[in-house]
Amino acid sequence: MVSHHRKDWADQLDDALWAYRTTYKTTIGTTAYRLIYGKACHLPVELEHRVYRAIKQLNFDHHLIGRKRKLQLNELDEWRTMAYENSLRYKERVKESHDRHIKQAKSFQEGDQVLLFNSRQKLFPGKLKSWWHGPYLVTHVFTHHNVKISDPQNGTFKVNGQRLKHYFPGNNTLQKNGGNSPPYVPP
């Protein structure tokens, strides 16, 4: 809708906002217009015809108008409650979908031997060197997968459990400290 030089975007803003507010949102189960005003949005042509019919139907009876307005306010509360519930259901579905793709956390016990992933290692200087350093000894397991590990040379420090993997001493493919790289010193 904007011309090729894109300088008239402000002129199109009202139309874009109208389209956004009157579009049905799946997450809330209604339109933003209906949540704000409590009724469906009608085009100007429809409004002329409806206003004439409403005036003719109500015939300016103040009691009927008052009752109708109370009913509309109650409907508005119901629409907002429904939109809130729909939004919660949508968020739960998205969370379930997200949680299905999360890997299960590794569980560590005190006394386990682990290897620590060194994310500070540069890619090119030793690209064939191992990114895993260790083995370290697990001294304490905290909540939320935090683990305190110790090494006689580097002391004890706390790391996230996602940066660790189990070390099995019978496997000779990985030498101590990842081959010939220097020992990892935590920040």
Results as ranks from 00 to 15, higher is better:
R93Q: 10
H98I: 12
L17M: 14
G111L: 04
K70M: 08
D77C: 13
D77Y: 05
L73W: 04
L174D: 02
W9L: 07
K158Y: 06
Y90S: 15
H63F: 09
N59A: 12
L35A: 04
R53I: 08
R6S: 09
F108I: 00
P125I: 04
Q162H: 11
N154H: 06
H49Y: 05
N180A: 10
Q109M: 15
S87P: 06
R34N: 11
P135I: 02
E110Q: 11
L43E: 08
K106T: 05
I36C: 11
P183M: 06
L123G: 05
Y20I: 14
S119T: 11
Y136D: 02
L71T: 05
G29M: 05
K7W: 14
L43A: 09
Q57F: 04
P183I: 07
L17Y: 09
S107E: 12
R80H: 03
G161W: 02
S3F: 14
Y20H: 15
H145F: 05
D77N: 10
G111T: 04
R50M: 14
K106G: 02
A32N: 13
T143K: 14
E92A: 11
K122M: 13
T23G: 06
L115W: 02
L137R: 06
L71I: 03
R67E: 06
Y33F: 15
H140K: 15
N74Q: 14
I65N: 02
S3T: 15
L17A: 11
H145M: 05
A32R: 09
L174E: 01
H49M: 11
G178E: 01
Y37S: 01
K25S: 14
N74L: 13
D112P: 01
K103F: 10
G179D: 06
F117N: 02
Y136T: 00
P187V: 07
